[in-house]
Amino acid sequence: MQIARRPTETWTEHPSPGSIVLDTRDLSKVYGRGKQRFEAVKQVSLTLHQGEVLAFLGPNGAGKTTTIKMMAGLVRPTQGRVTVAGEDPHRQPRALRHIGAVLEGNRNLYWRLTPAENLDYFGVLRQVPRQLAHRRGLELLARFGLEEKRNTPVQKLSRGQQQKVAIAVALIHNPRLLLLDEPTLGLDVEAGEMVKALVRQIAQEGRAILLTTHQLDVAEELADRVAIIRRGRIIAEQSTEALLREFSGSTYHLEVDGELSPPQIHTVTQLGATVRGTQITYAGTPENLYALLGALSPVPLVAVQRDRADLTQVFLKLVKDQPESSP
């Protein structure tokens, strides 16, 4: 089936919000042969919608880069299939119009060229008409706060600035899918924060973003959904929220402003909470929590907080729990 495509896309136009941008089925990759044979990726199936950020999380060597390159048409899958906006990047080079990618490492750019020249060049390479590429390039540089560095050769920029230029270059053709392989790796804290903010901004424009990382905080801060990969296989895939909730305890910590009266302390203890001064700890059902809150009235509340797992705990738990050869 062929879907008619408009020849010109404007800068922000993205057809049918919520549509599937990336779809992979049973992607597998075997490197080498015989003794060298190594199964790097095993049956990875993922779907990514417009405007969604998916973090591909896993330790080094788990197969993240291999998977992302299979999606970009740079590594041929041994098995399985990739479609980006309905087209297969391995069969139709045209499908690459929908893909922007910043790959691992610091060299996605020509170091002898300036940011503006890189943007001009890659724009044309991605089939954007020359004038339009130039205009968009200037827009992106302005947006990314790189106007002053426009005419400085890339090799003289800081690592963080280089990464921003690389992201700008990946966006020059207004792709629907942005692939980022370890976008914050090797950046100092400040540059890392800057790149994270940028990723959030780009997601808000309605692009689908898939980023790989082995840094849990990056995934937790940026992703709507997390896929955890280990030894080439996805061992968990859920919304970040759900994953965190699932692994969170059900203990609540409450804090009040002022003394509880002895009858209040009695009721609260009856409901299964323990009181220590202004701190109350409760491990009962969520329903009884309201009875507890009622019993505290009218003493002002300072905080009600549920114990919350962070991705580090989830990750460690999952990686420990999974047997060596899970199906």
Binding site: K69, A72, G73, L74, P93, R94, A95, L96, R97, I99, A101, L103, G105, N106, R107, N108, L109, Y110, W111, F122, L125, R126, Q127, V169
Partner: peptide
């Protein structure tokens, strides 16, 4: 070696034309 080659192979023109 430096990494720009993959960006070149991401061109919808296809590598032979580039």
């Amino acid at each position: 070696e430096t990494g720009t080659l993959e960006q070149v192979f991401l061109s919808p023109f296809g590598a032979p034309r580039v």
